[in-house]
Simulated assay, not measured.
Amino acid sequence: MFRSKERTWKRLTIAMVAVLAFSVMAGCGKKDESKDAENSDNSAVVATYEGGQITENEFDRELRIVLSLQPTMEQFTQLDDFREYLIKQEIAYKYLESKADDKTKAEGKKKADEQYKAMKEAYGEDQFKAMLDAQKVTEKEFQNYMVRVYTVMEGQLNLVTDEEVKAEFEATKDDFTTASVRHILIGLQDAEGNEKYTLEEALKVANEVKAKLDKGEDFATLAKEYSTDGGSNANGGLYENAKVNKWVEEFKQAALTQPLNEIGEPVETAYGYHIIRVESRNEKTFEGLTDEEKETVKTTVASNKLDEFMNGELETKIIKEIKLPKVEKAADTTEGTEGTEDKDGATTPDTGTNTGTEETDTNTNSAK
């Protein structure tokens, strides 16, 4: 659930690297700038920190990183709070990169090069070029930024201990639980998105369906007849060996706690009422994690360390001054813009990259 604008923006920016494994350094229209040239221009200084500064042009490049991969985030670039968060992130990355040792820099560059190549292959040459051109991005700028980000992430990974990885797993082990769940959704809307039932009506139908199941009628048959979940009704309502953390919270908790092979009471979610039968559940131990899963946990710990650094030492000791110009809003649109900001604050996860939007989309398809 949405906690704060800053937390969501962290997901939308740092998560671009952690989840999508790439990011973009937007350009200023100079097609062959070196990394050193990026840091030398005659624009105004908008931030100073221990050992360096950020100019207006540099910040403009950083701002367009987001727009290169997430054009829908353009609305957020008009929010002063978001812009301030983004420049703090830019400072953090530049500062930490400057403190990295040669081994960390070499490993960061290696990973950045690997992901850069994979990204180009995934997008295709033409689409990749179009994405860069849309924000006046050169490939050199793109590569330089990726090296910076991966160097920073490598440095944070180096700080993670085995004990911290185990502790993080124990705190979040439900995220690795898989279950086979059969369910029937009595949805509030039909396939076209029109209202089908009120919440009260949906509960009434759900209780009627549960009564039929309790009398021994076939679950798969009733799922095909009643369920409005297009992702499972044709399969008799079954989601097999699925990660429970991909489902909405109420459905997830039922999958985690409901006794096996028993039909539970209808579970309410935003989509309607679910009649659920958990057919199997696999709860992982730390020893049972794959190497890839352990690396995922380690990356989470590293990301948390970076978050702590940004909210602690960066704020209190490293940043000297930030003087970004305020975003100018037209007088006749100010009221609407302010209203939009409030709305965006409440719905930002739906327009995000990975920690929010993917889960929301999967929730819609997997647990309704």
Rank of each mutant, 00 (worst) to 15 (best):
A202K: 02
L157T: 01
T55C: 02
V327I: 11
R11I: 09
P325I: 12
N207H: 08
K117I: 15
G237V: 04
T172G: 10
R11G: 15
Y226P: 01
F82E: 05
K243C: 00
E315I: 07
T104A: 06
K305R: 14
E154V: 05
G236N: 06
V327R: 11
G231P: 12
H183T: 07
Q115G: 03
D361S: 14
I91D: 03
A15Q: 10
R61C: 10
E121N: 04
N354P: 06
G27I: 05
K117V: 15
E313Q: 10
K117S: 15
K10H: 02
A112N: 11
K246W: 14
F59S: 01
E315H: 14
R83G: 01
A37K: 09
K110G: 05
I318F: 11
F219A: 03
K368W: 10
K111G: 00
L238T: 00
E328Y: 02
S4I: 11
A21P: 01
G356L: 10
K10R: 11
E163S: 08
F219E: 03
S23R: 04
S227W: 03
D307H: 14
Y273V: 08
Y145N: 11
A211E: 13
Y93N: 00
M310L: 14
A21C: 04
A234K: 14
I91W: 09
V248M: 07
L188N: 13
N363T: 08
D229S: 04
V327W: 05
A167M: 01
E262S: 10
A179L: 04
E195F: 07
L159Y: 00
E192D: 15
Q258Y: 09
A191T: 10
K136C: 06
G345H: 07
E240F: 00
T296V: 14
Q253M: 01
E168G: 01
E262A: 07
L67Q: 02
